[in-house]
Each structure stands twice: as C-alpha cells, then as structure tokens.
C-alpha cells in the first residue's frame, strides 16, 4: 500500500516539475526533443534511485553536521558513473545532453529527495520514492519535449508526424519556446487544481 503510494505520488500529486517546481534547468534545456528528454529522464532517475538507496542505507552512520557534503559526494559519484557509461555506450545522446549530465549533481530534485525523504525513511520506501520521483520527472520532461518537438521540428521521437506542408515553428525548440511551453503547462496544472478544489 505505502510502497505503491510512494511510487505513484511523483506523477501527479507531488510531480517534481509541475508541482514542487524543482530541477528546472534540465527540464528546459534538454526538452528540445523527446529522445533527449528520455535520455535525461533515465539518467536522472538512475542517479536518484541509487543515491536514495545509498543515503537511506548510511543515514545512521552519517553525522548530521556533514550530511550535505556526504550526500553531494554520493550523488556526484553516481553522476560521474552515468556520465562515463553514457559516453561509452550512447555517445550521440551523451553529446546532445552535453554539460547537463554533470549538472545532474546540482539538480535540486536529487538533493531535495535525499534531504527530505531518503534521510528519514527505510531503504525500500526510499527506492520506491526514487523510482516514482524519477519517473515523474521523466514523464514531465517527455510532455514538455513532445510539445516542443512537434511544434518546432514537426517530428516525434524522430518520426515525422506533421503534414509535409507544415513549416516548423523554430521558436519552440529555441530558449523562448521552452519557457513559454512550460508556462502554459503550469497554468493548465493550476487550472486543474483550482477546478478540483472548487
């Protein structure tokens, strides 16, 4: 029951991007295509799951005073592993995500979950939280990327979905399009929330 709860809350109720508004930089920067969004989402999910597990395992032996530096070391180690593995096995994706792979370290979602959840929960529920939050993050990234890729390139995951006559709206995959897309998506989330509460 609780395990399932932890697993699903990341999608809607505590969606890291739309509701808690964390980890904006990668959300906006790599959502130019669905392919990048999936890559980034899984990289962050992997780091999130691993760091959640390790941190909940060592929570009893970490002195409170230096817990933040220790979290950072753990997270940075996993980020570096992801960085190297991606460079070796998915070089194209590694290149298009570029600097945002090392920057997963400072993705507030990961440190935020370590501090707010893994720090005081069991390994199992931390694992569920990691999976849920990670997939919620990936899911939100894919939504933003879907809108931007279809409007901006006329494709989805590389396949042409718009009619040949469609002239791609370039601005959608450039920086301004990222902000505006996310702005409207958040407006929609608020609208849904307001309707439900009324």
């Amino acid at each position: 029951m609780t395990f399932l709860n932890e697993l699903t809350k990341g999608f809607i109720k505590e969606n890291p991007i739309f509701v808690i508004v964390l980890g904006m930089c990668p959300t906006l920067a790599v959502s130019t295509s669905v392919n990048n969004a999936i890559g980034m989402g899984f990289a962050a999910t992997f780091v999130l799951i691993c760091s959640n597990i390790i941190i909940s395992m060592i929570k009893d032996i970490t002195p409170d005073k230096i817990r933040i530096p220790i979290y950072i070391v753990v997270i940075a180690a996993f980020v570096s592993i992801v960085d190297m593995v991606m460079a070796a096995y998915t070089p194209a994706l590694h290149k298009s995500l570029g600097i945002f792979i090392p920057l997963i370290v400072v993705n507030c979602i990961i440190l935020g979950r370590a501090e707010a959840f893994a720090n005081r929960n069991t390994v199992l529920s931390s694992l569920a939280d990691g999976i849920g939050m990670g997939l919620g993050f990936t899911f939100s990234l894919i939504i933003v990327a879907t809108i931007r890729e279809i409007l901006g390139s006329g494709t989805w995951l590389g396949f042409k979905v718009m009619p040949v006559t469609y002239d791609p709206m370039l601005v959608a995959i450039l920086a301004p399009g990222a902000f505006i897309t996310l702005g409207f998506l958040m407006g929609m989330m608020q609208m849904m929330k307001n309707k439900r509460s009324r």
Binding site: V21, V171, L174, A175, P176, G177, A178, F179, I180, L182, G183, F184, M186, G187, M188, Q190, M191, N194
Partner: peptide, 19 residues
C-alpha cells in the same frame, strides 16, 4: 487570469525576455 498567477506567468515572462 487566476490560473496564470505566480509561476506560469513568470515562465512566460522569461520566454518573452529570452526572445
């Protein structure tokens, strides 16, 4: 509009600035 208050309008503003 009520739904656009706060973060959403902030993001759209950022978009216009980026433009």
């Amino acid at each position: 509009p009520v739904n656009m208050k706060g973060m959403p309008i902030g993001l759209i503003l950022a978009g216009v600035m980026a433009l």
